[in-house]
Design a protein around this nucleic acid. Structure first.
Length: 411
RNA sequence: GUGGAUAUAGCUCAGCUGGUUAGAGCGCCAGAUUGUGGCUCUGGAGGUCGUCGGUUCGAUUCCGAUUAUCUACCCCA
């Protein structure tokens, strides 16, 4: 085969084999979130570019080099969403939902980032996320962490670790960044080029560098947690207390800072022990609403990578098999078979029928592969005497059933 | 953007230091079994050997370029 074109780099075709699993996981995500009181929102894939510049942060890698941004026909700069939070918050504010607090919403959407694809990393990927708006309380933080936990439990995903940290409010962040900058400047020559740039734009992010040398030089660097004001410290301590009470295991890692600029106070990541890949990341973003022109609206949420989650889900249960297969023997039976099939389907019985004009043998073979429960045979003999031959595909048992009674039989 | 690997049938892959007609397994279709799946046997369909160029009497094989895929880094879900 020589197609004129293939799928776009970093995108995936979701074929029936995998889509069953996708549907299953999606239903678990939605059901668990509903248990916690989150309701679904859908926002457009496409937003004005400025929304992401302001929220995710112009200096972040996501905005500065990974966005699908283009001018539409009227010359407006628009962007395919690179994450779910900004659009969700925009929609909440624009539609005035923040007048009834708290607002708890979830979303499952595709996101787009123009980067080089690799393991568990795509240009089009699916994100599940929840956001709680209007609560300063660490109960809101713990609630979403419990939700993630319950999802993994339900899906039987194990070997994940939870790392948490607190970045503090804007005051704490500012003080820390100042000292961090001083520290980095003192050791300026010991850091790699990227870090050197970062120390001026967003010093905290130097912690994300994986360069061994840089890591070494960070050993005596200031620690965010030492800079928390009393309120932030209490918030973080309370969160830990609640997690302890519910026996949720976590590691405090003062080095996780996250790449999206909007995070404040609590941040957390669920990391797969084997691959070290972050499956779920989130935290608090109390200033984001004001950043995009909204009121003071404390918020907390997370994003969870569906593809990454799918690769961790081993077994799942989803009945998708047709119940009945109708095999057709000879020309005359075709119309009767169609009539029967439609009758079954109208009665909520999933039914398949030969549409390839295949031999009877391959028809039954197909029924077997499709895992149909029953196979019906319709040929001249049956038509003449007004019955249907009925075969139980599991036991192999066969019966002749009166045509007028067949519906009750397959039910 | 930087590094590594790969590209042969629908899928997974063989193909020796270059040599007639490019193979296997699985899958698909058919027959053995003239109206019946799972097991077995037999046959069949299906390939511009990623693309372009070079070396050669001759290239799937060697060389160059290009594209695509995978993978590591950066970053993130």
């Amino acid at each position: 085969m020589n197609l004129i074109t293939k799928r776009i780099k970093g995108t995936q075709d979701l074929l029936p084999d995998k889509s069953d699993k996708f549907e299953y996981v999606e239903s678990v995500l939605k059901n668990q979130a509903k248990l916690y009181g989150f309701r679904l929102v859908r926002t457009p894939v496409i937003e004005h570019t400025v929304l992401f510049e302001r929220s995710v942060g112009e200096n972040s890698d996501v905005v500065s080099k990974e966005m699908y941004t283009f001018l539409d026909k009227s010359g407006r700069s628009v962007t395919l969403r690179p994450e779910g939070t900004a659009g969700t918050l925009r929609a909440i504010l624009e539609n005035g939902l923040h007048n009834n607090l708290p607002v708890k919403v979830m979303y499952i959407t595709s996101c787009y980032r123009y980067e080089k694809p690799q393991n568990s990393r795509y240009r089009e990927f699916f994100q599940f996320g929840v956001e709680t708006f209007g609560s300063k309380s660490c109960l809101a933080d713990s609630e979403i962490i419990f939700l993630v936990y319950s999802i993994f439990k339900k899906l039987k995903v194990q070997n994940l670790k939870l790392e948490i940290n607190s970045l503090g409010c804007s005051e704490c962040k500012k003080k820390f960044n100042n000292d961090m900058k001083k520290y980095l400047e003192k050791n300026f020559d010991n850091f790699c080029g990227i870090c050197k740039e970062r120390m001026y734009r967003n010093p905290m992010r130097v912690f994300d560098c994986k360069n061994e040398n840089c890591k070494k030089n960070l050993k005596n660097a200031p620690i965010v947690l030492d800079y928390l004001c009393l309120r932030c410290k209490n918030h973080f301590d309370d969160l830990k207390k609640i997690l302890d009470l519910e026996k949720v295991n976590y590691i405090v890692n003062p080095r996780i800072v996250r790449g999206l600029d909007y995070y404040t106070k609590t941040v957390f990541e669920f990391i797969d022990n084997k691959s070290e890949i972050t499956v779920c990341g989130g935290g608090r973003y109390d200033n984001l609403s004001e950043e995009i022109g909204g009121p003071d609206l404390p918020s907390v949420g997370f994003g969870l990578g569906i593809e990454r989650l799918l690769s961790l889900v081993k077994d799942y249960d989803l009945e998708i098999y047709p119940k009945v297969y109708i095999s057709i023997i000879g020309e005359k039976a075709r119309f009767k078979a169609v009539e029967l099939a439609e009758n079954f389907r109208n009665n909520n019985i999933s039914t398949e029928i030969d549409i390839l004009n295949n031999s009877l043998k391959s028809q039954v073979k197909y029924a077997d592969k499709a895992k149909a429960k029953y196979c019906l045979f319709l040929g001249d003999r049956e038509l003449e005497n007004n019955f249907v031959k009925f075969r139980n595909m599991v036991s192999g048992e066969e019966k002749e059933i009166d045509m007028n009674n067949i519906l009750n039989y397959v039910k």
